[in-house]
């Protein structure tokens, strides 16, 4: 895992960006700022239950499931099949990306390989089984099927490349 210092550094930078932009926004237009904060608040309220659920889930995942179990299935030893497991999971599950990152970090802590975690995040966002009906309706059968199949293949390729490089 990363050191505490680098953790705080990221948090500080993110907060500085939002604060800086907020000040800019207040100076430029009070009305737009109010609207932005309203949207921010609404988004926040909407995501709270998901955040709580994922935090509880992570606690139990790492607290109850022995890490050699996780690493056996999706660790370095699991190799290609480990990637396939997480790639399929990521395609089927519908977890907002925002809260998928803490989950992914917990899998890494629990012994999953970089490849598996990269495959999980990438298919989670790029391949959408849940949004498939909507995509079919709006973009047509050919584009939708090609996009999802190619996304899956490329997600696995990205995962393997990441494992090789990192």
């Amino acid at each position: 895992m990363k050191s505490i210092v680098s953790n705080y550094l990221t948090a500080i930078i993110i907060n500085a960006i939002s604060l800086g932009w907020l000040i800019f926004s207040v100076v430029k237009s009070k009305e737009k700022t109010k609207k932005s904060l309203k949207i921010a608040f609404k988004t926040f309220i909407k995501i709270i239950p998901l955040v709580v659920i994922i935090i509880v889930f992570i606690g139990f995942l790492l607290g109850f499931i022995p890490s050699n179990f996780i690493s056996n299935i999706i660790g370095d030893k699991a190799g290609f099949w480990g990637i396939m497991v997480t790639a399929v999971l990521g395609s089927v599950l519908f977890i907002p990306a925002l809260i998928s990152f803490p989950l992914a970090a917990s899998l890494l802590d629990g012994g999953a390989s970089v490849m598996s975690v990269a495959a999980f995040i990438t298919t989670l966002t790029m391949v959408g089984i849940v949004t498939l009906p909507l995509e079919l309706r709006e973009l047509g059968k050919k584009t939708t099927i090609l996009r999802n199949v190619l996304s899956f293949i490329f997600a696995v390729a990205i995962a393997i490349l990441m494992g090789v490089i990192l």
């Binding site: 939002s18 932009w21 907020l22 309203k38 949207i39 921010a40 988004t43 926040f44």
Partner: peptide, 9 residues
Amino acid sequence: PAVMIIIGL
């Protein structure tokens, strides 16, 4: 909270 504010902005 900071990320939410950025999304709103």
